[in-house]
Write a protein that binds this DNA or RNA. Structure first.
Lengths: 120, 120
DNA sequence: ACAATAACTCAACGAGTATTGAGATATTGA
DNA sequence: TCAATATCTCAATACTCGTTGAGTTATTGT
């Protein structure tokens, strides 16, 4: 994750519809959701609007897509989201681990950390 | 952290100068840096430009300021950054902890997690 | 092949944003 | 109080972004 990628990701996340899409796809997990189903969840957004935002998110690397029949299925890229978090918080505790730990605790609360997870 | 706060934060982070300021302040820790010193680190940005971006970041809740003599000292709000991460990644592993752990590992690598940290 | 469904592409409009430069406010030391 | 330093405020400009509506491409079942 370099600065340009991070800027693209934050730009993508700074728009209401796109932020909602990403959060929806984060909860949807690896199976993802079709563009049409996502559009209905976004107050019935038009197809061109969904296409614009989903394309934006894909170009920013935050979501991935695959075709399944007539539908295109989108899913969140957890790798990209992790990289973004790491980019933003890198070197957050130079000499002060206590100011950084709230972020670790917040993210750890999402799921039980497995001690075996490798450390990029 | 609600949706509006998150959108403001991502908007603030989606601009090159502001993203650099936040990352600089994250590494600077709680002591922070003066507006002038930050401006010099931003390729000598003009004072009005720094004021605009620092004000934007403060309004978004990502940085805090205090006056010290003639200078105004800015520091990153780790609480806000943690809240943002948690908002983005909430419910990231419904039934699939393995897809969420890379994010935890990325952030944990920032500093050694202390097992005592309370879990918001 | 044809019709229906799902999603994408494109051009145009209106709204919001970053930068600049000049000027104003706050603090300090002599 | 005066000059110097540090930062903020404001108006004008150019730039970027989101939405809309019409049209296009891809896939499926008959």
């Amino acid at each position: 994750m370099d600065e340009k990628q991070a800027l693209d990701a934050f730009t993508a996340l700074s728009q209401e519809t796109r932020l909602r899409i990403v959060r929806l796809l984060v909860t949807a997990g690896p199976e993802g959701m079709s563009a049409g189903v996502i559009g209905e969840a976004m107050d019935g957004a038009s197809s061109s609007r969904m296409s614009f935002h989903l394309g934006h998110l894909e170009q920013a690397g935050l979501v991935e897509s695959r075709r399944e029949g007539r539908s295109i299925i989108y899913s969140a890229s957890l790798i990209a989201l992790s990289g973004l978090v790491e980019f933003l918080m890198r070197d957050c505790c130079q000499g002060h681990p206590e100011v950084c730990n709230p972020a670790v605790a917040a993210l750890s609360s999402c799921c039980e950390p497995q001690k075996g997870a490798s450390h990029a």
